[in-house]
Design a protein around this nucleic acid. Structure first.
Length: 447
RNA sequence: GGUUCCUUAGCCAAGUUGGUAAGGCAAUUGACUGCAACUCAAUGAUCAUCGGUUCAAAUCCGGUAGGAACCUCCA
């Protein structure tokens, strides 16, 4: 299968070639855990979970790493404000985050490192950068020397001179250049660690490098690095700079960036007061619907949450659930076997769509095609059970790749008997009985 | 100020190297149906606008209008 991705680094669609055969190493920048996750936080999670599921389905062994930033000014402030320890704050919100992503159909990454667990590695990583002349210490702070990197700015397409003359870079007498960024910050307040440069805490940009470096030896080079596209600058640019200095590589062969979620055509922000927590949307509409809204648009385009787009996805999910459950019912009543995941036929166009830079819109079109065919098949006078079984299998596999979780009832003997009685009553035109039985079946979510 | 991107039917949305536009939601009509739900079928776009290149452009180039993002913490 020819898998292609748009690589933010080259700004081109490229064929996907892994470093090791049949294995994919993937890292996605995770959240800073100081508040409930908003819906925007869910986009990269859903996008890269879908990518991971797809890669696994087509046979790759995927090592998916996504971090938790549990050291940060916002966390320290929150802890001070609520008179709690930083750890209490971060543990709570990590739990909330995990809960949300499970509700929205995401599997846990293979590794979820936390900054606080990588402190010794971070310190030694910074130490190496200093020894290599790529970083320098001033008054207990350590800065990265951007001038050491000749093509700094290549990911984000930012011109260094423009940055400096743009006068939007904060001035700081300690730094050799305004572009230099902090690797280690001297702190007087909140949680801190001892280091060769005094008490302090690490800067944001180093943690991802160190985690990747540690988890993917020997040189911290991985296949895919993902995240929101706002992270291109400065975060990912700075990650690349550090890896260039440390290992002379660009961390990842493929840099993938997802676009944002808008709320009613506006960017979600605190100042606009339109921040929506993921948990609230999930509670109101269910994880499948929220996930469906996200998947309905290509990951590099913005997705808009409005009453209309949510309603649309809600109807789509409902339709898929209906036919899926009906097929499960028909198969079970007729003592046919329920196919297992991973062996479906008719997946070609669906998989091709996903192989094409994760085109979920086109993949969904294939899912709807199967949905329609299944509905048609269910209405035939002479039901073709083999066909139903095959369509059910196809649909199961598609849904499992997309992370849409649809439950159906496993019928026991009593359930089957109830259903048959319902059919019999209907056939006898005993509608008061059949209505009663129907209500029971609906109650049990069998039909 | 610098950089980048977007504009496809009421709404969402796809569209490899140019060859007269996937799919979904909603709507309308029809069908099915004891009732309801579910479902099926049919119906809609000169691709913001102007001009250029070309036998041929939603797709390439340029102008105009409108919108957005990044350059600062941000998914």
């Amino acid at each position: 299968m020819n898998i292609r991705f748009y690589n933010s680094l080259s700004k081109k669609v490229e064929d996907f070639k892994t470093i090791k055969p049949n294995q994919v190493s993937m890292y996605v920048c995770g959240p800073t855990v100081y508040n409930y996750p908003h819906i925007g936080n869910m986009r990269p999670v859903v996008v890269f979970d879908t990518l991971r599921r797809f890669l696994e389905y087509v046979g790759y062994k995927v090592t998916y790493v996504s971090n938790f930033t549990d050291v940060d000014d916002k966390i320290i402030n929150k802890a001070l404000q609520e008179k709690k320890s930083e750890k209490e704050v971060t543990e709570y919100f990590i739990g909330e985050f995990k809960n949300d992503i499970h509700c929205i159909g995401c599997k846990d990454p293979n590794v979820t490192p936390k900054v606080t667990e990588y402190m010794s590695q971070i310190i030694s990583y910074i130490d190496v950068l200093i020894k290599k002349g790529a970083a320098y210490e001033k008054n207990g702070n350590v800065y990265f020397r951007v001038s050491k990197i000749k093509d700094y700015g290549s990911l984000s397409g930012i011109n260094i001179d423009d940055l400096i003359t743009g006068a939007r870079v904060e001035t700081n007498d300690e730094k050799e250049s305004p572009l230099d960024f902090a690797l280690w910050k001297k702190t007087s307040e909140g949680i801190s660690w001892d280091s060769p440069w005094g008490k302090g805490r690490p800067g944001w940009h180093t943690e991802c490098c160190v985690m990747i470096d540690t988890i993917f030896p020997p040189d911290g080079l991985i296949d895919i690095h993902g995240g929101g596209y706002d992270l291109k600058f400065p975060h990912h640019e700075n990650e690349i700079a550090q890896a260039e200095a440390r290992h002379n590589n660009k961390i990842a062969n493929y840099w993938l960036h997802n676009n944002f979620i808008n709320i009613n055509n506006e960017k979600m922000s605190k100042s606009l007061g339109n921040v929506i927590y993921a948990k609230d949307l999930i509670e109101q509409f269910g994880g499948n619907v929220v996930r469906m809204v996200i998947l309905s648009t290509h990951y590099r385009a913005p997705v808009n949450f409005t009453n209309e787009t949510i309603e649309s996805s809600k109807n789509e999910v409902q339709k898929i659930e209906n036919v899926y459950r009906q097929m499960a019912l028909v198969l079970q009543i007729n003592e046919k076997k329920i196919p297992t995941i991973g062996h479906a036929s008719g997946m070609e166009k669906f998989l091709d769509s996903l192989a094409d830079d994760l085109n979920t819109s086109n993949a969904l079109a294939e899912l709807y095609e199967v949905t329609k065919r299944a509905n048609q098949s269910l209405r035939q006078r002479e039901i073709d059970f083999d066909l139903i079984e095959q369509l059910f299998s196809t649909m199961s596999d598609m849904l499992s790749i997309l992370g849409i979780d649809i439950k159906y009832v496993r019928l026991n003997t009593a359930d089957k008997k109830l259903y048959e009685e319902y059919l019999a009553a209907k056939a006898k035109k005993d509608f008061s009985l059949s209505d009663k039985l129907r209500a029971e079946l609906i109650e049990k979510k069998i039909i």
